[in-house]
Design a protein around this nucleic acid. Sequence first.
DNA 1: CCCTGATGTCCGGTCTATTGACATCAGGGC
DNA 2: GCCCTGATGTCAATAGACCGGACATCAGGG
Lengths: 194, 194
Amino acid sequence: MDSFAERTKRRLRDELLDAAYDAIVAGGYDGLRMAEVGRRTGVSRQTVYNEFGDKWGVLQAVAARETERFLVLVNAALAEHADPIDGLRAAVERALLLASDNPLVKAALSAPGSDQASQLLTTRGQQVLELSHQRLDAHVRENWPEVAADDVTTCVDIALRVVLSHIVNPGAAPAVVASQVAKVLGPFLSSSRR
Amino acid sequence: MDSFAERTKRRLRDELLDAAYDAIVAGGYDGLRMAEVGRRTGVSRQTVYNEFGDKWGVLQAVAARETERFLVLVNAALAEHADPIDGLRAAVERALLLASDNPLVKAALSAPGSDQASQLLTTRGQQVLELSHQRLDAHVRENWPEVAADDVTTCVDIALRVVLSHIVNPGAAPAVVASQVAKVLGPFLSSSRR
DNA sequence: CCCTGATGTCCGGTCTATTGACATCAGGGC
DNA sequence: GCCCTGATGTCAATAGACCGGACATCAGGG
């Protein structure tokens, strides 16, 4: 089922991502050295290339893992509320708070080389968007089956984009933004109940 | 220094030993199946042979690891006493207590196939003896440098053999045996102080 | 203008696990 | 007594992954 070799492969990838994460947090995308990632993990530079293709692949993989972890926490905020609108508000606020003190987000937006890394959240943001979409859609449908599936998708998409925008370019405080989003999307959600 | 490959190799060996340990505790030496050890670890049967040579090698390796762990605890008992004779008594008692509820020792002495496994502690006990000797000698010399090195070796050897004998063939209670050993060896130790 | 350091690619060598086959042996059932 | 099963132990061929070195390329700095 799950062989030692498979576990080892996963572990290798995980340790490489740990090393890359640390390097990015410490020195941003520019400070990330492929050779250094390998060295810290006790593996050759070539192995890093075999695993991720190129440097951009490393950044993407780090971001994907971080996004997954991020979404677990956001989904937990969603799940704490019986009413979908309350859940929406809580999730938005949680996401903004988490993002504001996430070392990787900070590094991506402010460290040297941020012009590259920040694209993960802007012009090259499909990966993060899609991943978040999948996780959130699934979770919302499970929690509030009474809302039409299409409308869930629409709602998640809009909220997601607003949140992402605020992460990249902060406006009002998290709680304020969350209330705004809930207020604006609330009527739509209510009208779509079966 | 310590590459990913080396760590993986150690981990493999460790997981194989875990699987073998469980199998032996559950079914004794006869109940140990090479294929099962591999299967539980997610590795082929051949890999088990590559690592340990043969079934006896597996048992030896399990015993060696267990002995090391055992000695850490026994040495801790030694270290808790400033006087060598007190230390000796405490170590003997600790060893006998630990052995009496050690699952591996129980399996080796009572489970089916114990005729084979028990040889590790009797006719084929060199490995365990030597390992214990090294660890204990080093520890004792470090703790009580005032005792002549030769006499330490002698003393450890005798105490060790008495303890091993009591493990295989229990006599008086641990505390009693410990006191006996301390009483008998005490004068010798005292006389050898520099 | 060269020198340095980093990315990315290629390839041959090596190590290790895997797979399948085989010989051997002990125990149990017919 | 004889065969069948299951286990140990051995062997060779194969495959997969990492390694090491070499190389082209490019950007930045003295």
